[in-house]
Nucleic acid binder design. Structure first.
Length: 347
DNA sequence: AACGATAGCAACCGCGGCGCC
DNA sequence: TGGCGCCGCGGTTGCTATCGT
């Protein structure tokens, strides 16, 4: 039994989409939701494969897509997440609001991968290339430890991605009475992603802990109601508002700081399995980047060539040193972590 | 100005997972 | 419970723009 083709390819158009096709697809989805992608092309009057329509929609036409240059913070997130998750672009994309997996994948392949390689860091293992030779000893343990954590995070991300997918499905398959299903005001009130609800999250959420530290001072709510993790997105859903958490500062980062994001069990396991150096590793890792980010954040228009506060990442004189510090800190973190001597806590 | 090399990105392809029957 | 169909993911391709000679 061979796999049946996803669609009858005879007479179907391929290649770049025309604006007319875009309009048809947009109009149809706005009115009816996408429903079955397979059936959509016929209903929408498009000579395209359903798969092609889905791709065009998810990667280009969706109104909640942010296009353009990636911010420093987004780059950081991608690198961090890639170190943790590997080439799992969809999982990475769930942590970068408004960015598509395809866009992130392309950005990684065309920019970040090369940049890491240039720094002498293996973009696959995220370790200095020379270190790979010595990975047979202690590093393998560290890798195992990191992988262990990655597996958990991975599983959580998958669940989170499923939630997101289901939510999107609800919002796209159930047509709204309004003309545009996708305007923010028409977005159904969905449960926030698991990692964004630290108080309720039963999971070890290393990424959230990191994000807590990355939260920009400028994004901190002055009313003390909470703070927002602003990935340079004014509509980012990454926010905390249900408790009185103060924004952690880089210098004060500790397991206590991470505590709001990490369950008690996970926190103790984390401390235990990292020999207490986990937080220290993160602290060092984040300092340079955070400082750099703070200066970059002073300007909202990073494309403004005349703005002295904006530093072109590619051309910054200190970039290489900063990156070295950054990655050596990551390595410190990895190297200082001992393999878990206890099974993962049951959350 | 012309041509080749390279970079960037949109789109395609094939596979695996999941749900339904 | 296994077959089937659909969807989504990740890898890859190919086109276009830009840069260098």
């Amino acid at each position: 039994m061979g796999r049946s083709p996803c669609c009858d390819k005879v007479g179907l158009k391929k290649g770049p989409w025309t604006s007319e096709e875009d309009q048809k697809l947009l109009a149809y989805i706005e009115k009816h939701g996408h429903g079955s992608w397979r059936a959509l092309p016929n209903k929408a009057g498009l000579q395209r494969c359903g798969k092609s329509c889905r791709l065009r929609w998810t990667n280009y036409l969706r109104p909640d897509i942010k296009r353009g240059k990636f911010s420093m913070q987004e780059e950081q997130s991608i690198i961090q997440l890639h170190a943790l998750l590997g080439n799992r672009w969809s999982a990475i994309a769930t942590h970068l609001p408004k960015r598509t997996d395809n866009e992130i994948k392309n950005y990684w392949n065309t920019h970040l991968k090369k940049r890491l390689a240039k720094m002498g860091i293996d973009p696959i293992t995220h370790k200095p290339k020379s270190d790979n030779l010595s990975s047979a000893d202690g590093h393998s343990k560290c890798s195992a430890n990191l992988n262990h954590m990655a597996q958990w995070e991975s599983a959580r991300l998958e669940a989170e991605a499923r939630l997101v997918r289901e939510s999107k499905l609800r919002s796209t398959t159930i047509p709204s009475n309004t003309t545009n299903t996708f305007t923010p005001k028409n977005q159904p009130q969905l449960p926030p992603p698991v990692s964004m609800t630290p108080a309720a999250s039963p999971c070890l959420d290393v990424l959230s802990a990191l994000q807590g530290v990355w939260a920009k001072p400028s994004a901190i709510n002055g009313q003390g109601r909470g703070y927002t993790i602003d990935l340079e997105s004014p509509t980012s859903t990454l926010s905390f508002s249900d408790n009185n958490m103060m924004a952690p500062t880089i210098s004060s980062f500790s397991m206590d700081t991470a505590a709001p994001f990490v369950s008690t069990e996970a926190s103790s396991w984390l401390s235990e399995s990292s020999g207490g150096d986990f937080a220290a590793g993160f602290t060092g890792m984040l300092s340079d980047e955070a400082n750099e980010q703070n200066s970059a954040d002073r300007c909202e228009d990073s494309d403004n060539a005349e703005c002295g506060s904006c530093v072109d990442v590619e051309e910054s004189e200190g970039e290489e040193d900063d990156n070295k510090n950054y990655w050596s800190s990551i390595l410190n973190l990895v190297n200082s972590s001992s393999p878990p001597n206890s099974p993962p806590p049951v959350f």
